[in-house]
């Protein structure tokens, strides 16, 4: 038998899954852009007290609605001031904290709920699946914005209430996607092999199934983060979200809307950063889906 025809003597040369992933990540511009924007905003949010040029709550009646530098303002307030004379850049920087915190914590809460439900339904099937599917359908029948508005109207708006409401409402997509992914992976023979070895159910779920569906989970996390951030902005815009004077981008748009015709930048600046953040998160999610797509794993 010649050396080449004996597969045992052939070198095992292909790249490891880790190397492949690294190569695909750095070759994906959308993902790099998304990751970079989100990372920068996260650093800005964390370092807000260091970076912000002014106190975001400090009012100044003599310096109200000063324009940003590019509209003839001064470097004292690079993005101008709002109707109470508060530095707009500083409020924007502190607003990043609110947005990322709400997006992150709401996605975490709903991710835990939805993943637990979806994985259980997909793995155990039968009655567990029937119950979870019923709960998903009940949840999908409820309009998120109306329910959130109603709850916030009753309990009063605050950062905690908004995070809790969104966290308890946005688990449906997690449950649907994790259920479908688990159902697919459960049928693989390596799961049967682990069962035949005598591995416990928690071990099979955590060590055999989760690593193979976690890429789908990450994609949903990004989608739901963006979703929660937009919903917070909408609730705050309607006066039912984060309460003034807390700086929130949705609230800034809301406070600026009365002056929109005369000072459009009051609305456009927070609107633009909100747009960029949501776009970046979505690009990140899309990119992650691309680089971890199953067809790349042969």
């Amino acid at each position: 038998m010649s050396d080449l025809s004996d597969p045992l003597l052939q070198e095992i040369t292909g790249p490891t899954p880790g190397q492949l992933l690294r190569k695909r990540v750095f070759g994906h511009q959308g993902l790099i852009f998304g990751l970079a924007v989100v990372a920068i905003l996260a650093v800005v949010a964390i370092l807000a007290p260091v970076i912000a040029p002014h106190d975001p709550y400090a009012q100044s009646l003599v310096a109200r609605m000063k324009p940003p530098v590019f509209l003839g303002g001064t470097w004292e307030n690079p993005l101008g001031t709002d109707h109470l004379g508060r530095d707009y850049l500083s409020r924007l920087i502190y607003g990043a904290r609110v947005s990322l915190m709400i997006g992150g914590i709401a996605a975490l809460i709903s991710g835990v709920i939805g993943t637990a439900m979806g994985v259980a339904a997909g793995y155990f099937g039968g009655k567990v699946d029937a119950v979870v599917t019923f709960l998903i359908n009940v949840r999908l029948a409820m309009p998120v914005v109306l329910v959130a508005l109603a709850v916030v109207a009753i309990l009063g708006g605050s950062l905690t209430v908004v995070i809790a409401v969104l966290g308890l409402l946005l688990w449906d997509r997690f449950a649907v996607v994790m259920r479908a992914s688990t159902l697919q992976v459960r049928g693989r023979e390596y799961v049967a092999a682990a069962q035949a070895i005598g591995a416990s159910t928690p071990r099979i779920l955590l060590s055999e199934i989760m690593p193979n569906i976690v890429n789908n989970l990450i994609v949903v996390v990004t989608l739901e983060m963006a979703h929660a951030i937009l919903l917070e902005a909408a609730l705050s815009f309607l006066g039912l979200g984060v309460q003034p004077p807390t700086p929130s981008w949705g609230l800034m748009v809301s406070e600026g809307k009365n002056m929109m015709l005369f000072e459009p930048w009051l609305v456009l600046i927070p609107g633009a950063v909100l747009f960029v953040l949501v776009l970046a998160i979505n690009l990140m999610g899309d990119g992650l889906r691309d680089v971890t797509a199953p067809e790349n794993r042969s």
């Binding site: 899954p17 693989r188 023979e189 390596y190 049967a192 092999a193 055999e208 690593p211 193979n212 794993r297 042969s298």
Partner: peptide, 12 residues
């Protein structure tokens, strides 16, 4: 098992 592409966990 039959299918060695499905019987080994690709993440391990």
């Amino acid at each position: 098992f039959q299918d060695p592409y499905s019987s080994l966990n690709p993440r391990k």
